[in-house]
């Protein structure tokens, strides 16, 4: 993987890689991607993709409310919260 590609990917993954880190990870990333190349040796033309390990029946949940009682506890876990809101620096 080119350095540029690594940085684009890091931006997409929202990772703030330092130059030193990027250098360290670059080798490992390339090593792995090179290994992935071996998948090209397999003729996959007649193979359907497997997205779930076992085929199953439909699974649905009834539309009934759960009793909730620990919302405040959940909000209080946020690093910053105020008046029941979870607070972050202004995103605009």
């Amino acid at each position: 993987m080119e350095k540029d590609d690594l940085l684009i990917t890091a931006a997409q993954a929202q990772l703030a890689l330092s130059a030193e880190e990027a250098g360290r990870l670059e080798t490992a990333v390339s090593e792995m991607l090179d290994y992935f190349e071996m998948m090209n040796e397999v003729d996959v033309s007649n193979l359907p993709p497997t997205t779930h390990a076992l085929v199953r029946e439909n699974a649905l949940r009834e539309d009934n409310p759960n009793p909730n009682n620990n919302q405040e506890d959940l909000v209080n876990r946020a690093p910053e919260n105020e008046d029941n809101f979870i607070v972050i620096p202004n995103v605009l």
Binding site: F36, M39, N40, V42, V44, L47, P48, P49, T50, T51
Partner: peptide
Amino acid sequence: DQYYTRAQKIRTAVRN
């Protein structure tokens, strides 16, 4: 296609 989709197809091959 080159990576993820292909890997899912190879997954089928391993199962087979």
